[in-house]
C-alpha cells in the first residue's frame, strides 16, 4: 500500500512541476513585461518602471527567476497582491474555507441524491423512473449553471422570499472566525438565529454548484450499476438464494462504486470551476470570486497563486481518490 502511494506520488511530481512552470510562464507571456502589464493603461515613468523590475527581480535570467519562484512557492510564499499588498497565500487561506464549505455541501448534495437516483434508475431499467432520472440528469448536465443560479434566485428569493440572495450570513450576525466554516462558527457563536441564517444562505449556492456533479454522478452510477448487474457473480449470488436487496447493496453496489469513486474525484475540478460562476453570482466570498476579481483588476500575482493552489487541490484530491481506489478494489491493492 505504501509503495503504491509512493509510486503515485512519483508520477505526480513532474505534473506538479509542469504546473509551476505553466503558472510561471503565465506572467511572462503577457504582452509587454509584467510590470507594464500590472500598471495597466495608466502608464508609468521609466525610473519607477526600472525600480519595480529590480524589486520583483525581473531583471535576472528566466531560469533563475523560475527556480526562485518554485523555492518560494514551496515555502508558501506566492508573492503579494498588487491591489491590496496582502500576501497571496494569506488572502487565499482567508477565502478558502468559504469555498471549501460550499463545495462540501454541494458534493454532499450531489452524492446523497445522485447515487441513489442512479441505483434506482439502473434497478428499474427502462421504467418511467429510469427515463425520469435520465432526462432530469441530462438537463442538469447541460445546464448553464450561472443561468440556473439566477433562476433559483428569481424563484426562491424574489418570488417566494424563502432564501437570501447573496453572502454567507445576514449582516446582523458576525460570528467569530474559528474554523472559517460559517455553519460551525455560527453554531459556536451561540446565537440561535446565526446558524439558521448561515444555513439558509448556503441552500441556493449548494444547489447551483451541486447540480452538474449530481447529474454526472447519477448517470455514472446508473451505467456502472447496469454493467455490474449483468456480471456472472451477481447471477451466482442470486443463485445462492441471497435476497435482491443483499445482492444489490453488498455484491453489486460495492463493485459499481469503484468507477463511481473516480468520477467523484473528478468532480473536485468541476466544483472549483463551478465555484468561479456560483460565487460570482451569490457574492460568496471564496476563491472563485477572488480570482475573477483579480483578473478584472489585472492582479497577476493573485491569478498566478490562485491557479497554482487550485491545481494543487485537484492533484491532492485525486491522489486521495487513487488511494481509496486501492482500498476498495483488491485487484489494485495487490498489484506490485
Amino acid at each position: 500500500m505504501i509503495s503504491f502511494f509512493l509510486r503515485r506520488l512519483g508520477v505526480l511530481i513532474p505534473t506538479f512541476l509542469g504546473i509551476t512552470l505553466l503558472v510561471f510562464a503565465l506572467i511572462h507571456m503577457i504582452p509587454g513585461d509584467p510590470v507594464e502589464a500590472m500598471s495597466g493603461e495608466r502608464g508609468m515613468d521609466s525610473a519607477r518602471h526600472a525600480q519595480l523590475m529590480t524589486e520583483f527581480g525581473l531583471n535576472r535570467p528566466l531560469p533563475v527567476q523560475y527556480v526562485d519562484y518554485v523555492f518560494k512557492a514551496a515555502k508558501g510564499d506566492l508573492g503579494r497582491s498588487i491591489v491590496t499588498q496582502e500576501s497571496v497565500m494569506r488572502e487565499f487561506l482567508d477565502r478558502f474555507p468559504a469555498t471549501f464549505e460550499l463545495s462540501l455541501c454541494a458534493i454532499t448534495f450531489a452524492l446523497t441524491i445522485g447515487i441513489p437516483a442512479g441505483i434506482i434508475a439502473a434497478f428499474k431499467r427502462n421504467s418511467v423512473v429510469d427515463y425520469g432520472v435520465m432526462g432530469v440528469s441530462l438537463a442538469g448536465y447541460s445546464m448553464p449553471i450561472f443561468w440556473w443560479a439566477l433562476l433559483l434566485i428569481l424563484f426562491f428569493s424574489v418570488q417566494l422570499g424563502w432564501t437570501p440572495v447573496s453572502g454567507r450570513i445576514a449582516v446582523e450576525y458576525d460570528p467569530e472566525v474559528v474554523t472559517g466554516l460559517m455553519l460551525i462558527d455560527s453554531l459556536l457563536s451561540g446565537e440561535p438565529g446565526a446558524f439558521r441564517s448561515a444555513a439558509s444562505h448556503l441552500i441556493l449556492p449548494t444547489i447551483a454548484l451541486g447540480t452538474i456533479p449530481l447529474a454526472t454522478l447519477a448517470r455514472m452510477t446508473r451505467s456502472a450499476m447496469l454493467e455490474v448487474l449483468g456480471e456472472d457473480y451477481v447471477r451466482a449470488a442470486r443463485a445462492r438464494g441471497l435476497s435482491p436487496l443483499r445482492v444489490l447493496t453488498r455484491h453489486a453496489l460495492r463493485n459499481a462504486l469503484i468507477p463511481v469513486l473516480t468520477v467523484i474525484g473528478l468532480q473536485v475540478g468541476t466544483l472549483l470551476a463551478g465555484a468561479i460562476l456560483t460565487e460570482t453570482i451569490f457574492s460568496w466570498p471564496g476563491i472563485g470570486k477572488w480570482m475573477v476579481e483579480a483578473i478584472h483588476r489585472r492582479d497577476y500575482p493573485v491569478v498566478q497563486g490562485g491557479i497554482l493552489l487550485s491545481a494543487t487541490i485537484v492533484i491532492a484530491v485525486n491522489l486521495i481518490v487513487d488511494m481509496l481506489y486501492g482500498v476498495v478494489n483488491p485487484r489494485i491493492r495487490h498489484q506490485r
Binding site: 457473480y233 451466482a236 443463485a239 460495492r254 463493485n255
Partner: peptide, 14 residues
C-alpha cells in the same frame, strides 16, 4: 444449488 461455466467471473472480485 448451481455452479456455473466460468468460475473466474462467478466470484465477486471484492
Amino acid at each position: 444449488a448451481m455452479i456455473f461455466q466460468d468460475p473466474m467471473t462467478s466470484l465477486n472480485p471484492c
